[in-house]
């Protein structure tokens, strides 16, 4: 496999982002997002076999494709994964909205109707509610919201989240436990017992 044509750009932008150069993030996002979409499409289509439901693998692949590891250090990586998680969230929410629209419009996503028939939760709708609740959480506990974004949407491991946010793994775990509990109560999940 030859190097990805955007690898140099992405790496440069990440380094700029890390140095606080204005506008770096704005230029970084479209490139990464385009690639992320492409990779995600394959995962969602089940082309990656057992790895289908492993977003970590997805983000890993994105990282290897877009970042020249010889020029980057842990701080750059942290920025990259934080960015990737934001984008994953956006991608998933976009997709959930599309799926929901299709369903409501009597579209061809038969699978959703079938799921409804056999009583499986309407996941795309729930994902949208998580997204909204998360936005609220970010207002009073931005770090917890970040942890949820990276773990739930980005599929990143606790270790990588800790590295990216510059906190301990124990803190990541604590943040996750509480944020998850809070989100569960907000979503009115029947099993949350409220």
């Amino acid at each position: 496999m030859e190097g990805h044509p955007d690898a140099a750009t992405v790496t440069d932008l990440l380094i700029e982002l890390q140095q606080g150069r204005p506008g770096a993030l704005d230029r970084l996002v479209p490139v990464v997002y385009a690639e992320l979409r492409a990779i995600a499409a394959q995962y969602l289509q089940g082309d990656r076999g057992a790895a289908t439901l492993q977003p970590t693998a997805l983000v890993n692949e994105l990282y290897f494709k877009l970042v020249d590891q010889r020029r980057t250090d842990w701080a750059t990586r942290g920025h990259f994964f934080a960015t990737a998680a934001i984008l994953m969230r956006r991608l998933i929410i976009d997709h959930a909205r599309a799926a929901l629209a299709l369903k409501r419009g009597g579209g061809k996503l038969v699978t959703l109707d079938e799921q409804a028939d056999i009583g499986i939760a309407d996941t795309p709708a729930e994902l949208l509610r998580v997204d909204e609740a998360l936005a609220e959480l970010a207002e009073f506990d931005p770090r917890q919201a970040k942890v949820v974004e990276m773990r739930f949407f980005g599929g990143l491991t606790n270790e990588l989240i800790a590295e990216s946010l510059g906190i301990s793994v124990a803190t990541v775990k604590r943040d996750w436990v509480m944020a998850r509990a809070w989100l569960a109560t907000e979503l009115g999940n029947p099993s949350a017992g409220c």
Partner: peptide, 18 residues
């Protein structure tokens, strides 16, 4: 809530997509 299952939150978001 933390003792109970949290539904959609207990697996990566992408897994919940059709």
């Amino acid at each position: 809530a933390s003792d109970a299952g949290a539904g959609v939150l207990d697996q990566p978001a992408i897994a919940g997509l059709p």
